[in-house]
Structures are given as C-alpha cells and as structure tokens.
Design a binder for these strands. Structure first.
Length: 576
RNA sequence: GGUCCUGUGGUGCAGUUUGGAGUGCACGCCGCCCUGUCAAGGCGGAGGUCGCGAGUUCAAAUCUCGUCAGGACCGCCA
C-alpha cells in the first residue's frame, strides 16, 4: 500500500514512483486542473500536485501515488523539510472521508483542553502530541537500556494487591469471589520489589504504573508511570549512580546532551537556604539567616525564633507598592502575619515602614548580611522557623521562578530526617515510608516515646529534584527485622498491628534478606520537564481532567445493579 | 474541604468595568472563480439558548445569587 513516508522523501528520490499514505493536511486549489495537496503522516508533510478532478477535504485519509520531482527553481519551500521536491502526476485514492476537525490542526493557537481531550484521537495527530508521545517512548527506552546496561532485570509485579492503610488513599477493586472484600491497586510496587531482593533477583527494575486516589494537579494524575528500581548489596552512593545514569540517558535521548554531574545538597541546607525540600536551583535568591542580627532587638516583629530574608535584585524600582501589597496578601494566605520589606536607596539608606523600630547597627547589619546594593528590595519573614522557611521559600518562587522550559537543574537532596513531625498523640510521622533505614549514627535515638529527639534521626533517604519538581525518591531499606520492629514501635504501631499489616515482609526478612536500597522516579514528570511542558497531561496519551474524569470515554460511569449485586455492593445516596 | 481564574457561532479572541436590538475581528466550514501555490488568493454565504437556572430591571452577554464544566494553587499526595 505504501512505499515511503511523507517526511523522508528527498531530492535523491527524484524519478522514483512512490505511494504515500496519510491525511490531507491542507489543499490549495487553482481551478479544476491544478491543486496542491499537502499530505501528512507521522514523519512529516509532502506536497502533491494533483491535476485531475478530485474531492479532497481536510483530514481525508488518502493514498497518493506519483513521481518524485525536484521542484522548479524558485518554487522551493524553505520552511518544509521536503520543500525541495514534490509528487507529480498524482493518482489519488480516498481511503476514508472525514468530517472537518473540531479544532485547527496547526499548533499556532491554543485550544481548550477539554475539547482536545474529548477528541484526543484528533489532537494526537497534531505536532505537539506526536512529538511528546514519541519522545516519551524515547525516554522509556533510554531508561530501560540504562537499567539493563547496569545489570537490572525487569520484573512485573501485580496490580491487584492487598490494601495498606499507610500513605495515599488506595484505589480499590471489589472481589467477586469474596464479596465484601477488596483488592487495592498499587500506590507503588515497594513491598514486592523488596521481596524480589530477598528472592535473590539482585537488581530489579520496572516501568510501573502506580495509582493514588488523591486530588489531581499539573504534575499529578491518578495513574502515573515510574521507573522503579531496587538493588542488593548496595547503598545510597551506588543507587544515586544507577539512577543518575538512567536520567542522564533519558536527557541525552531527548535533549541531545549528557547532563553534567548532578549536585547534592543536604535536606537541612535545602530547607534553610531554599525553604523547601525540592529547591529550584536554576536561580539564587537564597534565604539568608538574620536571626543573630536581631538578637536583643527592640523591634517587636523580629523578637522571634527565626528571621530570614531574600534579596530581590533591582526590586526597589521593579516591584511597586501594589505588588508588595499583593505579595503580603500571599504571605498571609501561607500562614504568615505579614511581610517586612525594605528598599535600598541612595547611600544604602533603607526605606520601609519598620526602619523606625531598628537601630542604625541593625540597618547596616541587614544590608551587609543580605549583600544588598542600591536599588535592591529586601523581603523578611520572622516567626516560627518552619513557617519562615516555608513562606520565604514560596515567596522566592513567586518572585524569581523562571519559565519551566528554561534550563535543567538536577539536584540530589540527601540526609532526609526519619520523621517529619510529632503528631497530637505524641507519635512521630514518617517522612518517607517505614522501611527506610535510619542513619547508622542516629540509631540510638530510635526509641518508643522518644519525643523531640526522634526528630534528630536522619534517614538514608534521598530525593531527586529537577527545576523544583520532585522527580523521585528512594532509600536504603531496613533488612534487619529487629531494626524494623523498633521503627514500627517508634511510629506507634503495636506488634499486632505491624504483624497484621506487614507480617509477610517481616517473615521474609527472617529468611535471609540482603542489604538493599532503591529508588523510583516519575516518567511523566521527567518527560514533561525535558520537553518544556508545564503539565504532565501533555505527555500522557489519555489523561484525566482535574476532577478525575475522562471527557472521551466519560469515565467514571455508574455500573448496573446486576453487576453491583454480583460484587455484593450497594451504593448510598450522595452525602449531604 | 478551601482560594482564585475562565466559560460569547466549529476554533481562538474582543465586547462585560459604566445594562440599551447577538455587535465585531481572525481562522475554519459551504458555494462560485482561479494552471505554481505552500498559513495561497478573490467574491459570496451559512452558522449563536453569550455554560445552565433563578433574581434585580422598562431592558441583562454585561449587575446579584446559585449551579455545572475546565484550569492554577492550598489542604491532601508515607
């Protein structure tokens, strides 16, 4: 049926009779005896000269047979890859007619996303989705290749698994054979990959679909793909090497450049200097510690646990009063009391409502510590340390964040704490999952009811960040059942609870578990960022909307009563 | 659960602040003309419950309330 692809024809094909198949991209008619038909397939577009009567319309599916001719001088189209040639003496065979597409096929204007998703099969023909989905495939293949190179074996893990109460909300599947009982869809293959390590598979990987029933965002869908990996007899350093290699291969496949070595930063530095555990290191504007400067100050605003500030270069003029008010409102929404600001004027004189409460030394010290120069704007937060970091971190992004497609800044964040806080029952809240190995120097703090000292425990957990997005995370796992028991105990699980939820894992660890460590990163997020897309829906063939529905298939849909009965289910009227 | 933004022929927008006849622009679509165009060109035409529902008003795309859909974000996502 087809001898060649449209986009691959060149002047070297001159004289060949070829058959190409595809969709009518555009037609330019010059009376009954001459028409130019641009025929499009997934490789590109080629101009076909049709000089007989025909009835071709946009998006008709056709096969065109003709002879390749180098275009006459002056008729070339420099904007088209095949612009040097055309098909002559064309015979047109209409394989299928088509209605006019519901939106323009060219990418020069944005189209409402609901309409694109409703007609995704048409949208997919357009350049953007063709490019994105093909690059996504390149990412996956590069990642697979990199893992295979490093001795990893692909193993599939089940989709229908037991529900675990930890972590995100599970998607649940009713059991027909055991009415009233349910499977859960995996939030990640975490437990299975650890079992593979006990099973002597040595190095496992999988591009796994994971499902979490939590609200959707630009970087979150119900279901997403991750490169999931685990290796035996290795620690953090090796895992970071494995994953860096896979990520670099993917970056090379898409961007054509192998990234420089990926820098590392401790979790505590990320929090203190960037106010977040996923810093966007493409720009500076770091959080500067000012607490010592205001020790013993008379200014009430700064009589707090922590004072930090950021410097906006040239912000004194660029950031107007209205904008400052706007930023202040944002800070309040984020939980702050307000926003302290100072403009640095001529001779480094500070201008701002709070200067009258500050001594000359404090003002001079502020300028010095902030590294400020004339024309800068200084923004300060004071209060509880967690809040100061958080608010300033958000403010920093609000003011300085570059467009998502500008540059690539990978960053490994290491030395996460084991527990992120103590809840109202006095139990610690795990920062990562409860199979994470504590830092060897900190194991002694790991006691039930340890209170605040538990927060000092570092874990051997690490994240990979790209342009301020969390790409993925991993850890060295606990392989010693005794340590695992004390972590469960510290978390406030009773022996029975631990046995009930994870007994099979603890059992497995008794039969010779090797030391092991692993990682997982999101394929959707990586692909989106590599392609400069700010939304993972753009790299997913059939994504859901923010409210979790699919405009194409209308999922989710009700199921009929007979089906419900078979599953032993009954629906309740919607809650008030 | 919450905050904010958007909804106007098939598509993208303007019109809404300050109420006065479905008004306009670009693309697309349909018909006719056109033998070298390539985002072809020329002439003509069709196409609308201004998301939906209530309210205010002599009068609502425009103001108010509610609701639905989409999006960004907060919460949530071990």
């Amino acid at each position: 049926m087809r001898t060649d692809y449209c986009g691959e024809l060149t002047p070297e094909d001159e004289g060949r009779e070829v058959s190409v198949c595809g969709w009518v991209d555009r037609r330019r008619e010059h009376g009954e005896k001459l028409a130019f038909i641009d025929l499009r397939d997934h490789t590109g577009v080629v101009q076909c000269v049709v000089d007989e009567k025909h009835d071709l319309r946009s998006e008709y599916v056709v096969r065109i047979t003709g002879t390749i001719v180098v275009r006459p001088e002056g008729m070339e189209n420099a904007f088209l890859d095949t612009g040097g040639i055309e098909l002559r003496d064309c015979e047109v065979e209409i394989l299928n007619r088509a209605e006019a597409p519901p939106f323009p096929m060219h990418s020069r204007q944005d189209v409402d996303e609901t309409v694109r998703l409703r007609y995704r099969y048409v949208d997919m023909r357009r350049e953007r989705m063709q490019r994105n989905l093909r690059y996504r495939a390149l990412v996956q293949s590069a990642v697979r290749g990199a893992m295979e190179d490093q001795g990893f074996t692909e193993i599939e893990t089940p989709l229908l698994i037991a529900s675990t109460p930890e972590g995100a909300r599970d998607f649940v599947v009713p059991s027909r054979q055991k009415p009233g009982e349910f499977y859960a869809l995996p939030q990640s293959p975490q437990i299975f990959k650890q079992l593979c390590m006990v099973g002597g598979m040595d190095r496992y990987y999988q591009i796994a679909k994971c499902l979490r029933d939590e609200d959707l965002r630009a970087d979150r869908q119900f279901e997403f793909a991750q490169l999931d990996a685990e290796a035996s007899f290795v620690g953090q350093e090796e895992v970071i090497e494995f994953i860096s290699y896979a990520i670099s291969s993917a970056t090379d496949a898409v961007r054509g450049v192998w990234p420089e070595e990926m820098p590392m930063m401790s979790w505590i530095d990320a929090m203190e200097y960037y106010g977040t555990d996923k810093p966007d290191t493409r720009f500076d504007m770091t959080l500067i510690e000012l607490t010592p400067l205001f020790e013993g100050t008379e200014a009430n605003v700064f009589k707090t646990e922590c004072v930090k500030g950021i410097t906006v270069d040239g912000g004194a003029d660029e950031v107007g009063r209205n904008r400052i008010d706007e930023l202040t409102e944002m800070c309040k929404r984020w939980g702050a009391k307000g926003l302290a600001w100072f403009r640095v004027g001529e001779d480094l004189v500070l201008d701002g409502g709070l200067t009258k409460f500050m001594t000359d030394d404090e003002q001079a010290g502020l300028i010095h510590m902030m590294g400020a120069k004339q024309g800068d704007l200084l923004l300060l937060q004071s209060g509880d340390r967690h809040l100061v970091r958080d608010v300033l971190g958000r403010l920093r992004l609000e003011i300085g964040k570059p467009p998502i497609d500008e540059g690539l800044a990978f960053l490994w964040v290491v030395d996460f704490p084991m527990f992120e806080s103590i809840n109202d029952n006095g139990d610690p809240v795990a920062a990562h999952h409860p199979f994470t190995m504590p830092h060897p120097d900190d194991v002694d703090y790991l006691v039930r009811g340890g209170g605040e000292s538990l927060l000092k425990i570092r874990s051997q957990a690490y994240d990979l960040v790209l342009n301020g997005w969390e790409l993925g995370s991993g850890s060295v796992r606990i392989h010693d059942p005794e340590i695992q028991k004390s972590v469960f105990a510290a978390l406030g699980f009773s022996e029975e609870e631990a046995e009930d939820k994870f007994g099979f894992l603890l059992d497995a660890f008794r039969y010779g578990a090797p030391p092991h460590a692993g990682f997982a990163f999101g394929i959707d997020r990586l692909t989106a960022l590599l392609l400069g897309e700010e939304n993972i829906r753009e790299v997913i063939a059939f994504p859901k909307t923010q409210s979790g529905s699919d405009p194409l298939t209308n999922a989710p849909t009700p199921i009929d009563d007979r089906h419900l009965t078979e599953l032993g289910l009954r629906t309740l009227p919607p809650a008030e």
